[in-house]
């Protein structure tokens, strides 16, 4: 088993007084795809949002416990959440291109942040590389100046992947990235995951069990805010250790 790039230790998340995650501990292997599955409302999204400190953006949302990135607690007082988010990128459920920006400006949006200056040539190179990595370059290379919102839903989602990759994160969180997409776009995103894991550590939330089985190396099953089972994907889907996991993956509940 590869080393853990990130790990959660007794992670608890709250919305005001309500505890949504009841002490979750698990590790995310470097350069692997880890899928988080579970029924709606089980805390999947909350868990990944705790991994790049996006959970606390929502008013009233807090968390406790530790999240280690390369062994360092991202919730330590000296850590700036902005720096965490640069290292741990995120793609959301619905595509969120910036509607007033062109395709290339969308990809380069993160490059202008935090006073990082890149030359024009460097910027163009990063835009092309990111779009290639997101398997979108061939489709948009002739219309980089077009608005990002003019693309189809599946293309917009890959644009958001490219935008997240452009800032060179180490970990990429994907919160149900295919739930708003058609099967063909979904297949493209899944292919993408297999290519991206060479360079990035990927954590994907999905309610689609076939998707988890197809493209992840490890799977975590979450239920009602508790981590029920975690292991290699093959093992989880063939010989689950827990009764709840078996019931869920065979469709008996959830």
């Amino acid at each position: 088993m590869a080393d853990n790039k990130m790990s959660a230790r007794d992670l608890r998340a709250y919305f005001h007084k309500v505890e949504a995650l009841h002490g979750v501990s698990l590790g995310f292997a470097a350069n692997r795809v880890t899928a988080i599955i579970g029924p709606s409302g089980c805390g999947k999204s909350t868990l990944v949002r705790c991994l790049n400190r996006m959970h606390e953006v929502v008013p009233g949302a807090t968390c406790a416990g530790q999240v280690l990135l390369d062994g360092e607690d991202i919730y330590a007082p000296a850590i700036d959440p902005v720096q965490v988010r640069r290292r741990v990128g995120m793609v959301f459920q619905k595509p969120t291109p910036f509607p007033t920006m062109s395709i290339e400006d969308n990809v380069a949006a993160g490059l202008k942040l935090n006073g990082i200056a890149v030359s024009r040539a460097e910027r163009d190179r990063i835009v092309e590389e990111s779009l290639r990595r997101a398997a979108l370059w061939e489709e948009v290379k002739d219309r980089l100046k077009r608005p990002g919102a003019s693309l189809s839903g599946g293309q917009q989602q890959r644009l958001c992947v490219a935008r997240a990759l452009a800032v060179e994160p180490e970990v990429l969180l994907m919160d149900e990235p295919c739930s708003a997409l058609d099967p063909i776009s979904t297949a493209r995103i899944e292919e993408l995951l297999l290519e991206l894991k060479e360079n990035f550590t990927i954590i994907i939330v999905t309610h689609n069990m076939q998707q988890a089985a197809r493209c992840s190396d490890f799977t975590a099953f979450l239920y009602a805010g508790n981590l029920i089972e975690f292991g290699e994907t093959k093992q989880i889907f063939t010989t689950p250790a827990r009764r709840e996991t078996e019931d869920y993956i065979t469709g008996r509940f959830g």
Partner: peptide, 9 residues
């Protein structure tokens, strides 16, 4: 959130 997730202040 899209902006914040990119590491925006």
């Amino acid at each position: 959130e899209a902006a914040l997730a990119l590491g925006a202040t």
